[in-house]
Amino acid sequence: MIKEIIVVEGKDDTTAIKRAVEAETIETGGSAINKEVINRIKLAQQRRGVIVFTDPDHAGERIRKIISAQVPGCKHAFLTQEEATSKGDVGVENATVETIRKALANVRTEYDIADSDIGWEDLIEAGLIVHPRAAVRRMIMGRILGIGYCNGKQFYKRCRMFQITKDEFTAACKQMDEEEG
């Protein structure tokens, strides 16, 4: 049984999570997340902890940002779009049991971004921003680091928020370069 309560978008996501692991969920009801749901998430965070596990799409990222802004210290689980896509539909409900378990085994916890040692220059040097293949490289790095795909500014914020170390970042860059060949 997973101690934390997993925050998902809807009933199909809950069904997929419960197929993969023994856990309880809070459903946001989509991207129109209301005050009542936020209050339940805050209580869950205080009592047991929370893992935010939303779809790897615009709506899922919007929900993740809303929760992060209002409920500090959440853990986050991420899927790539490829892992969460079936017949053109993107969502946690489309992921395999194994993929869901892997994502939950690799959760990241938010921290105060002031404590990070990753700088904007590191992203430039790694070709994650201001580079012709920056989006592809961020997708690869997001998968390797377990922080998901996002734009350059958000990627920078996530590296800092999840306290990615210089060593982790350097190792992930090396693996990314090897994968790109």
Rank of each mutant, 00 (worst) to 15 (best):
R62S: 05
S116G: 06
M161D: 11
K102N: 08
I26S: 01
A59F: 12
I33R: 09
R108L: 08
P72E: 12
S116N: 00
K75D: 10
A135M: 13
R40L: 15
D177Y: 14
I26Q: 03
E98D: 15
G148W: 15
T165H: 03
I100M: 02
L123F: 06
G60N: 05
T170Q: 14
V97K: 15
Q163K: 09
S31E: 11
C74N: 09
G127F: 02
T54R: 15
G60I: 06
H76W: 09
R48Q: 14
V97H: 13
V107P: 05
K174I: 12
E125L: 11
K157R: 14
G119R: 15
I147R: 06
V21H: 12
K3R: 14
Y149K: 10
F162S: 05
R143F: 07
E178K: 15
A172H: 06
N151R: 00
N151H: 01
A134I: 05
A114Q: 09
Q163Y: 00
L128W: 05
S86A: 06
N106Y: 09
M141C: 07
V136I: 14
C150S: 14
T170M: 10
A171K: 10
T28E: 09
K166D: 00
V71N: 10
I66P: 10
A105F: 06
A16D: 01
T54F: 14
F78Y: 15
N151G: 05
V136K: 08
N94R: 06
R47G: 13
F169P: 09
G152H: 07
E83D: 09
K166H: 09
D167E: 07
P72M: 05
I33Q: 07
I140S: 08
F162G: 07
L104N: 05
G10T: 04
K102M: 10
A84F: 04
I17Q: 06
E61P: 00
E180A: 09
L104P: 02
V21F: 08
G142R: 07
E178W: 15
E98I: 10
V37W: 07
K42H: 13
Q81Y: 00
M176K: 02
K35R: 14
G29Y: 02
V97E: 12
R137E: 13
C150V: 08
I164V: 14
I113L: 06
E93W: 04
E178N: 12
G127M: 03
I2H: 03
G30Y: 11
A172E: 06
L128N: 06
E121F: 10
T15P: 01
V136Y: 14
H76D: 01
H76L: 05
E168Q: 15
I118M: 06
E110P: 01
N94L: 00
D57Y: 07
A59Q: 13
G49N: 05
A114F: 03
F78I: 02
D13Q: 04
K35S: 09
R19D: 11
V37M: 09
R40A: 11
A69E: 15
V21M: 11
P56W: 01
E180F: 15
A84R: 03
F169D: 10
R48F: 11
E179N: 11
L145T: 11
A172T: 04
I100Q: 01
R158S: 02
I17Y: 07
K153P: 02
A69N: 12
H58E: 10
W120Q: 08
A44V: 08
I5D: 00
I33S: 09
I124R: 10
E179D: 14
